[in-house]
């Protein structure tokens, strides 16, 4: 996107972002997309670029409580916004219940779509803690999975609902890794 434009004509703009609870101030070109800033300036590589045109759902992030495709949002538009990416879902060393559920049902094949799917699930469960199958499918309908794990996604979301209802929000990675 940037190579066709003359760099000097478009000076840097300072943008304040609060990403995963940390405040950043970054200098961006006016034409830079949020996805590029998150990936290349902040190093948050869980934000994947699939199609780059808002069709695949791999790049979605939660911005001020809204699910948005970061490939269609200019970085300047995210000024002063709160952004959540997969990295911010659980504290260091922990897994969020949704992540645990997706692992439990072995829904991960190539994994490229998963950050988007998990964030879409988080967004869904935040506003609707016990969704029906239909509601799950409606929301995840926007997330394309090349490997075709769709049925397991539905299973995983229901398992995540169960964990959250039992009050299990975070799981310790060390404990999960060590044999019982």
């Amino acid at each position: 996107m940037s190579n066709s434009l003359s760099e000097d004509r478009y000076p840097y703009i300072k943008v304040k972002l609060s990403v995963n609870g940390r405040d950043y101030e970054v200098s961006v070109r006016p034409y830079e997309r949020l996805i590029d800033v998150l990936r290349y300036k902040l190093g948050l590589t869980s934000v994947k670029e699939g199609c780059g045109r808002g069709e695949c759902g791999a790049c979605v992030v939660i911005m001020d409580g809204k699910l948005v495709p970061s490939c269609l949002v200019l970085a300047v538009r995210a000024n002063n916004k709160k952004i959540l990416t997969l990295e911010g879902l659980a504290p260091e060393g922990k897994l969020h219940a949704i992540q645990k559920a997706f692992l439990d049902v072995m829904s991960v094949q190539c994994g490229y779509c998963l950050p988007g799917v998990i964030l879409a699930t988080k967004w869904l469960l935040d506003k609707n803690p016990s969704p029906t199958d239909q509601e799950i499918k409606e929301v995840l309908g926007g997330q394309l999975c090349r490997c075709g794990s769709y049925l397991r996604f539905v299973k995983a979301v229901k398992l995540a609902v169960k964990y959250l209802k039992e009050g299990k929000v975070y799981f310790d990675i060390q404990e999960l890794m060590s044999p019982p």
Binding site: G54, G57, V60, K66, L67, V68, P69, L72, V73, A120, W123, E138, V139, G141, G142
Partner: peptide, 12 residues
Amino acid sequence: CSHFATPYIRSL
């Protein structure tokens, strides 16, 4: 509303 694109497009 229920058939317009996807939830993340509806917000933009």
